[in-house]
């Protein structure tokens, strides 16, 4: 494959005296969808924050390949500015003089036509997360990092948002690095699932490739079989 879009090497990441992450080397290729799967508290968010440059105190390095591809981040909660409208939130990084046409296009792409002037308090959780996705896309990133983006919405909305995310990534040619604790979500979305775990400090315990073409069918027997294998491996790796 070509040069990696994003490479994250973490030799060690401590919080005070506790080592949370150890010996991690992670690469993201263009247009690739990779999920980080692991139990709560294993350091998934920390690793993603390191990748985003939000966390700077660690031993290791983050390098962004190629033409300085932009990296954007979508948080677990929508984190919209409650005093700004949907459109203003989407163009938030540019401040008052955001690109109106581009924002309108993003609003259409995430299915929020007619809500450009709505305030966050008028949106449902799923709609707010759509706005957060659009805000992530505003800077035309080549990599989108997502931290459990759909864990706070109901199962139906989650499926819709998963499909929307894949569609947007495909359309804009964006690579995704997504954190989840949901095995089904990981297998449905990704090209590779990286399992994190460890008794003291976490590392990448195993890599599960998902060689299925998209669009995938959630009822696909091969997904079910992969899930079986994944659960077995997770057990063998003492992650569950």
């Amino acid at each position: 494959m070509s040069e990696a879009l994003l490479r994250v090497r973490v030799e060690r990441k401590n919080f005070a005296a506790v080592t949370v992450l150890r010996n991690i080397d992670l690469q993201l290729q263009p247009r690739e969808v990779v999920t980080l799967l692991g139990p709560s508290g294993c350091g998934k968010s920390t690793l993603l924050r390191i990748a985003a440059g939000l966390e700077r105190e660690f031993n290791g390095a983050v390098s962004r390949g190629g033409q300085g591809g932009e990296v954007a981040f979508v948080f677990q909660e929508p984190r919209l500015m409650p005093w700004l409208t949907v459109a203003q939130n989407i163009g938030f990084s540019a401040g008052g003089q955001y690109d109106q046409a581009w924002v309108q296009q993003l609003i259409r792409e995430v299915g929020l036509e007619g809500f450009a002037d709505a305030l966050p308090k008028q949106l449902s959780g799923g709609m707010a997360q759509r706005v957060a996705l659009a805000r992530g896309l505003y800077s035309r990133p080549r990599v989108l990092l997502l931290d459990e983006p759909f864990s706070a919405v109901d199962a139906f909305t989650r499926m819709k948002l998963q499909d929307l995310l894949l569609q947007l990534a495909e359309h804009h040619g964006i690579a995704l690095l997504l954190v989840t604790h949901d095995v089904d979500e990981a297998l449905y979305l990704s090209d590779r699932v990286l399992v994190m775990g460890g008794s003291q400090s976490s590392s990448l315990r195993l890599e599960l490739p998902v060689a299925l073409a998209r669009p995938r069918d959630r009822r696909d027997a091969r997904l079910a079989a992969l899930k079986g294998e994944a659960l077995t491996e997770l057990q063998l790796a003492h992650v569950i």
Partner: peptide
């Protein structure tokens, strides 16, 4: 800050 909420098609 100068944002104004417009009426929505929803309730």
């Amino acid at each position: 800050m100068t944002s104004k909420s417009k009426t929505l098609p929803a309730p």
